[in-house]
Simulated assay, not measured.
Amino acid sequence: MPWMRQKKDFLRSASPDVFRLFCLRSSYRSAVDYSDGAILEARRLLHAVAAFVEDARAYMRGQLAGGPVREDVLWDRLGRTKGAVQAALADDFNTPRAVDAVVELIHHGNRELKAAAEEPRGPRSPAVLGALVSFVEQFFETVGISLAERQRAAGAGSPAALHSVVEELVRFRQTVRRFALAAGEAAGEARRRQLQERRALLEACDALRRDLSAHGVRIKDRSDVSTWELLDPRTEDPKAGR
């Protein structure tokens, strides 16, 4: 039958999470629209949710430029959303309305992140963003969609990426350090003044070494050559990097 073939084609084109979100967007009492547009909308929405969680986490870690957000607005919106979701589910399990409420919360969160990025100075507001992320993840986890799993899957190649980033960072630091220590043709008093002028560069290199050590990356300076290694967080045994 044509409608059976339509369902099979639909299921083949959708991932499990996209299909779950598609179902949540449809009332269980209504006829289901198995169309390409419906699956594309569910896929787009799931991507938007995951993107918000990723951006919010980056903001909390200080990896996303931004100053303070309007905490009172987001706390109020979070409280309203929790009430709206509870009311929707109590109303004959109205999942479309519940999802719309969560999406609206994400919209407000994105708007605040965008505004914060335009004014990057000032104290950050990680607590309220953390509360939003926690609620969004918990909601989708409850309905069988794990955003945390999506984050881990997206970062499956992160060890190699981390190695490359650290390698480039250490190489750049080594170049700066060599410049700061280079004598050139200067000698005596001129050399002393040169070292004094470049002292800030050496201090910055030392500060970077200490900061990276706190994150499990140990840099060793040998004359004008720098090497690095990763520390096992469980034993602090080094794992060779370069």
Rank of each mutant, 00 (worst) to 15 (best):
R210W: 02
A98L: 01
A186S: 14
V128K: 04
L105Y: 01
L212T: 01
D211Q: 11
Q196M: 01
A98P: 09
A204F: 00
L169D: 00
V128I: 11
E112R: 05
L208S: 07
D92Q: 12
L208R: 02
R150F: 02
Q86H: 09
F172E: 11
R121L: 15
T81P: 10
F140S: 02
A207D: 00
G184K: 11
A156F: 02
V176Y: 05
R97S: 14
E141V: 05
G122M: 15
Q194D: 06
A116E: 06
V85C: 09
S146N: 11
T175C: 06
Q86N: 08
R192S: 11
L113W: 05
L89W: 09
A183E: 15
K114I: 06
A131R: 12
L129D: 04
L181F: 07
S146I: 07
V170R: 03
A116D: 00
R173Q: 14
L113I: 12
E189L: 12
A154D: 04
R171G: 07
E112Q: 15
T142G: 12
G109R: 09
A127P: 01
E168K: 15
V165C: 03
R193N: 08
A156L: 05
R199Y: 08
P96T: 03
L181Y: 07
A101P: 12
E168G: 10
R124G: 02
V133Y: 01
G130E: 02
C205V: 12
L89S: 06
G130V: 00
D211L: 10
R97H: 08
V103I: 11
G122P: 13
A98F: 01
V143P: 10
E141K: 14
P159D: 06
L195A: 11
A187F: 12
Q174A: 15
R210L: 04
E189W: 05
H163A: 09
R210V: 04
G122L: 14
E119Y: 13
